[in-house]
């Protein structure tokens, strides 16, 4: 089947599945435009935004099967597929965005680990940003782990997240995302945790008074491509795709940071209380999670746990260099 579908052709059409976040959507358009420009219209991209072709797991399978050529997915939804992605679910592994870019995405360990996805019939293209996850609720700002005690918080269905929140003393409740807004309105759950972009674009700030920048987990998007499709391209076509992807990625990371700033401003204007946690406060959370061996759980969930240690090592020497 592959032979007939993936021959080298002068004109190429790519089915691109994208997520709902604004910065990713605009970066998708950017990629579409750049590819078109660099190839003089020989390579076209059919862009499907807002997960209309299915949720992350479905589209990733679609890329494996060759139904979709390129897909943007959250690593958290794919960690059952590529168990090394559990690394990115570890709370307080990364402390700021810059070290994510430098080490988490582009460090030696990261590069090797991310490219391993070729074993699963997928080609790694890029890492995009979804952002640090933050805690929102209606009753009080979160400053210490004790503030989370007994709170019914909607989390993702992910063993590491569940373990971490249980260790903090919260009552984590998995729930469909589409029900979350109403559930918060009706207090079926006390709070939720998501990146600022999602909190803002889904108008969660209308039903949640307190947004605490706990920045507990950094959730990235991964951009994946069907390797047969990629390998059937000419060298020149490959260059075009790679160049466009590189530029779209840069654009996405920049835009994502801008959008977070804008979101914070708008939500403050709406009347939300937004509080930042100091590094010491974050360390309190990290301490409890470490005591509960959340790092261990994350490591044990990975296919190649040695990457976890290597990444930590890299991070430590990076932090020393930066005078952290």
């Amino acid at each position: 089947r592959t032979s007939s579908k993936y021959k080298t052709q002068e004109e190429v059409n790519l089915i691109f599945s994208n997520v709902t976040s604004n910065s990713a959507k605009e970066a998708g358009v950017k990629f579409q435009e750049l590819v078109n420009e660099y190839s003089d219209g020989k390579i076209t991209v059919d862009l499907f935004q807002d997960n209309v072709l299915g949720d992350d797991k479905t589209v990733a399978e679609g890329v494996q099967n060759g139904d979709i050529d390129i897909a943007v997915c959250s690593t958290s939804s794919l960690s059952t597929l590529n168990k090394d992605y559990y690394l990115y679910d570890t709370p307080y592994l990364f402390l700021n965005a810059q070290e994510v870019y430098d080490i988490g995405f582009n460090g030696e360990t990261a590069k090797e680990m991310l490219n391993n996805i070729s074993d699963l019939g997928l080609k790694h293209m890029a890492m995009w940003e979804n952002g640090f996850r933050n805690y929102t609720n209606n009753s009080h700002p979160i400053e210490t782990p004790a503030d989370c005690k007994g709170q019914k918080i909607r989390t993702m269905e992910n063993p590491i997240h569940l373990k971490a929140w249980k260790a903090i003393g919260a009552n984590p409740t998995p729930m469909a995302f589409s029900e979350l807004f109403t559930a918060m309105q009706q207090n079926t759950v006390d709070g939720q945790e998501n990146p600022l972009g999602i909190i803002y674009s889904n108008r969660f700030y209308e039903v949640q008074k307190y947004i605490s920048l706990t920045q507990h987990v950094y959730t990235p998007y991964v951009v994946l491509m069907n390797p047969d499709k990629y390998n059937a391209l000419t060298e020149e076509q490959k260059d075009i795709i790679n160049r466009a992807m590189e530029e779209a990625t840069e654009y996405q990371l920049k835009l994502s940071a801008e959008e977070e700033e804008k979101g914070i401003e708008e939500m403050k204007k709406y009347g939300c209380e937004i509080n930042t946690l100091t590094d010491e406060q974050k360390m309190e959370f990290q301490k409890i999670m470490e005591d509960a061996d959340v790092f261990g759980v994350a490591k044990a969930s990975m296919k190649n746990p040695e990457y976890f240690d290597k990444m930590l090592e890299e991070l430590n020497s990076y932090r020393e260099q930066e005078g952290f």
Partner: peptide, 21 residues
């Protein structure tokens, strides 16, 4: 269409049903 694989339908049969709501 020719762009989609023969596994498409059965894949959708499983993933579409995998929904709590």
């Amino acid at each position: 269409d020719g762009r989609l694989s023969s596994l498409y339908i059965v894949q959708q049969l499983v993933t579409s049903a995998d929904s709590f709501p």
